[in-house]
Simulated scan of single mutants.
Amino acid sequence: MGVGMTEASDIIERLGLRPLPVEGGYFTETWGGDHFSSIYYLLAAPGYSAWHRLDRDEVYAFHAGSALTVHLLGPGGYRSARLGTDLRAGERPQLVVPAGTWQASETAAWSLVGTVVVPPYTDECVEFGTPSLVADRPELARLLPAAP
């Protein structure tokens, strides 16, 4: 029946995904060029993608599984977006996260997405959230990176 019936652990194995330190989830790079980089990213509940921001744009594309809720904090304040295929429920298959926007994600079961980062991702382009980031929104503190 396809990916919709496949367990997250099977996808991790078949795509060769590996744990993503600090942020959470599993990934593998699918392209790393001069102009952009791309990855597969799988998030499985109860795990989450911890608060982080990139100094460059990131484009998400939903591939399979349950909807991915992406929490965003930027100059306009807080908002959330749902990546998925149920358009009538407000889900969208693609999301652009502008450079400098804080983001964290969670899912009800598991979600497989792809992301493209322009210019290419480097370890120097990411910053992880601290408690002061969500001081005025304590309900979002649960998505902070785990203490080492």
Rank of each mutant, 00 (worst) to 15 (best):
A61E: 11
L143T: 02
Y78P: 03
L20G: 01
G90D: 00
T6E: 08
S9M: 11
T30N: 07
L20T: 03
A64Y: 06
G84P: 02
V3I: 14
L72C: 01
A89M: 01
G4Q: 06
A141K: 00
S37R: 12
M5K: 05
E29H: 12
E13H: 12
H35D: 10
L87W: 11
A135K: 11
G32H: 15
G114A: 15
E106G: 01
C125M: 07
R53A: 02
S132T: 08
S66V: 10
V116F: 06
S9I: 13
I39S: 09
A108M: 09
T130F: 01
R92H: 09
L87P: 00
G32N: 15
V3F: 09
R88V: 14
Y40H: 15
R82H: 12
A147L: 14
F36E: 14
D10R: 09
D123V: 01
D136V: 11
R14N: 10
A104E: 01
E23M: 07
L73Q: 04
G25S: 14
Q103S: 14
V3L: 14
Y60P: 09
C125H: 10
L73A: 00
I12C: 08
P98C: 02
T115E: 13
L17Q: 06
H52L: 12
V96A: 00
M1Y: 04
P131G: 11
S111C: 11
S111N: 01
A104Y: 02
R142F: 05
G77W: 05
A99H: 08
V22L: 10
G47S: 15
A64E: 12
P19K: 09
V113I: 12
P138G: 07
W51Q: 13
F27Y: 07
V97T: 04
A146L: 11
V59G: 03
W102I: 11
Q103C: 06
S37G: 15
T130N: 09
A64M: 07
L140F: 09
G32M: 10
P19V: 07
P21K: 11
I39V: 15
P21I: 06
R137I: 04
E124M: 14
M1K: 12
V96Y: 00
F62D: 02
R53K: 15
V3C: 07
D34A: 15
W102L: 10
V59M: 14
D10A: 13
R137M: 13
L54Q: 05
T107V: 12
G84Q: 02
G65D: 04
G47Y: 08
E91T: 02
Y40T: 11
I11R: 04
P138C: 08
W51R: 08
W51D: 07
S38G: 14
E127C: 02
E127P: 08
R53Q: 12
I12E: 13
F128S: 05
E58N: 03
A81F: 02
A64W: 05
G76I: 00
G16F: 07
D123Q: 10
A146S: 14
Q94K: 05
V134H: 04
G25Y: 13
E13G: 04
P46S: 04
P19W: 10
E29M: 15
A8G: 04
I39W: 05
L144Y: 09
S80W: 00
Y60V: 03
G32E: 14
F27V: 05
P75W: 00
P46Q: 05
T28L: 03
R82F: 03
Y78C: 08
